Simulated assay, not measured.
Amino acid sequence: MLTRIDHIGIACFDLDRTVDFYRATYGFEVFHTEVNDEQGVREAMLRINGTDDGGSSYIQLLQPVREDSTVAKWLAKNGEGVHHIAFGTADVDADAEAARERGVRVLYDEPRRGSMDSRITFLHPKDCHGVLTELVTAAGSSASSVSSASTDH
């Protein structure tokens, strides 16, 4: 069951400049940064608030580090802006399977490692009214410890 908006992913050309904008304009501070080599992105998670289920909501800023990354290709086509929306769930496997059963294409056969050691998968935007949708199980939840061998986000 989806429990919250985990994050809104925003693609940007210059991560540091974009972080500075969110800090100066909204007062948001960086909670976490990482480079995900498999996804070809450098990212910053800006924490917005906590939620009733113990998780948080974030703005995720994504800067490509390779021209062949999905985010680089998306930026070249669309420019900076909202790239995807992510919903938190206690069990990404179960919710991905439920989406499949409803005819929604799930982009990964098995959830992968996402930001902050979460487990993630994506739903095809053509099946979600044009919105790339991510399902996220935060690290430390019971379902996230089932499988965290692969890396991605």
Rank of each mutant, 00 (worst) to 15 (best):
L75F: 10
A138K: 00
E38V: 14
S144N: 15
G103K: 13
K77C: 03
S57I: 08
G140Q: 07
I85Q: 03
M116S: 08
G88M: 05
I120W: 01
Q63K: 04
D117F: 10
G88S: 09
G79R: 06
R119N: 02
T33Q: 11
R17M: 11
V71R: 00
L61D: 01
Y58I: 05
R100C: 08
Y108H: 14
R102W: 06
T121R: 00
A44S: 11
R119Q: 06
G103I: 15
R105E: 10
G103S: 13
E34H: 12
K126S: 08
F87Q: 01
V106Y: 07
R17E: 14
S56D: 13
V146K: 12
L107A: 01
S118N: 10
I59D: 01
I48F: 11
V92M: 04
T89G: 01
D117S: 11
K77H: 07
D52M: 09
M116C: 07
A86K: 00
D109L: 08
F28S: 02
A149W: 09
A149Q: 08
A72D: 05
V146Y: 09
A76Q: 13
V92W: 03
E29V: 13
A139N: 14
V146N: 05
I59Y: 09
K73Q: 13
P125E: 12
R66S: 12
C128H: 04
P64Q: 08
L107D: 02
Y26P: 01
L123Q: 01
R17I: 04
H124I: 15
Y108I: 02
L61R: 02
R47E: 14
L132T: 08
T70F: 12
G55K: 03
I85S: 01
V131D: 04
K73W: 08
P64R: 04
E29S: 12
D117W: 07
C128I: 12
M116G: 01
R102T: 05
A24G: 09
S150D: 12
G140E: 10
R102D: 10
K77E: 11
S148F: 15
S57W: 04
A143I: 04
I48Y: 05
A138G: 00
G140H: 09
M116Y: 07
L75T: 07
T25C: 12
R105H: 06
F87D: 00
H124S: 13
C128Y: 02
R100V: 11
T51S: 10
N78Y: 13
